[in-house]
């Protein structure tokens, strides 16, 4: 945290130092309290501080969009067949952001209009995701794409990956901004894009981007890599460990 505050002050100084230069089309500078996150055994989600400086006015707005590494997501739909509820169709959303979070200074609708949001692909309903549909089983009706996207966003929200609530960005004197970016415990490893957009009178005035790098670390990385790179050896090790533990338990409690 001290490092974060220090970096924040540095950014402020940097902004002050560069402010005499002509303000052509504004500029956003942003950094994170921590850009490398490792998923270790104690990992239970993390809160990062996004902060920066902007060459702007008090009435300007900031929108921050955090999106996780694109991944294919299977969306399944259940229907009642023969008295029980079973999956009747699987649709694949190609390269969907594994995390999608928006943070703003004011409600989105007050910052700009729907067309602009659509053009910039801001909002879960504005992402131009590609759907690989599957034919549902005979006798069931396929829901239309709009309902699929709506339920997809809802399911991702309930996993904490696409929070439905817009987070808040604090802009001070039209010059400094800060926001808390909350990453849940089930984030996947990869490169996360953080887009920072400065809005003035409903249009984008300037834009900047930074990244969060998330990867497994420590013991959990060791186990994961072992399981994936040397899977046979991993299996043998798991069996050997279980046999040893079982034997040890039997011996220990026989005396006790």
């Amino acid at each position: 945290m001290i490092r974060a505050v220090f970096a924040y002050l540095l950014a402020v100084c940097g902004m002050l130092a560069t402010s005499p230069t002509p303000a052509n089309a504004g500029s956003v500078v942003a950094d994170l309290s921590q850009s490398n996150v490792s998923i270790t055994s104690g990992f239970h989600g993390i809160e990062l501080l996004l902060f920066g400086a902007v060459d702007g006015r008090e009435t300007d707005d900031i929108i921050v969009v955090v999106s996780g590494p694109p991944t294919d997501v299977a969306q399944r739909r259940k229907a009642q067949v023969g008295g029980i509820w079973i999956n009747v169709e699987t649709n694949i959303w190609k390269d969907a952001p594994s995390l999608y979070q928006i943070l703003t200074t004011r409600p989105l609708a007050e910052i700009t209009n729907a067309d602009t949001l659509a053009r910039l692909q801001i909002g879960a309903d504005q992402l131009r995701l590609r759907l690989e549909p599957e034919k549902p089983q005979p006798g069931t009706e396929k829901p239309h794409a709009g309902r699929l996207l709506q339920s997809f966003a809802r399911n991702m929200a309930s996993k904490g990956l696409w929070p439905a609530d817009v987070g808040s960005v604090k802009l001070t004197d039209g010059a400094l901004f800060r926001a808390n970016v909350q990453l849940p415990a089930n984030v996947i490893s990869g490169i996360y894009d953080v887009r920072i957009l400065q809005f003035r009178n409903g249009v984008v005035f300037s834009e900047s981007e930074t990244n969060i790098y998330i990867k497994k670390g420590g013991l959990s990385a060791m186990i994961y890599n072992f399981a994936h790179d040397y899977s046979l050896l991993y299996g043998l090790f798991a069996v050997a460990f279980a046999v040893a533990a079982g034997w040890l338990a039997a011996v220990a409690f026989r005396r006790g």
């Binding site: 991944t71 294919d72 997501v73 299977a74 969306q75 399944r76 739909r77 259940k78 229907a79 509820w85 694949i92 594994s98 339920s151 997809f152 809802r154 399911n155 991702m156 309930s158 996993k159 996947i188």
Partner: peptide, 10 residues
Amino acid sequence: PSDVFSVELL
């Protein structure tokens, strides 16, 4: 089920 839809990250 409370939600007939479910998702799984592949």
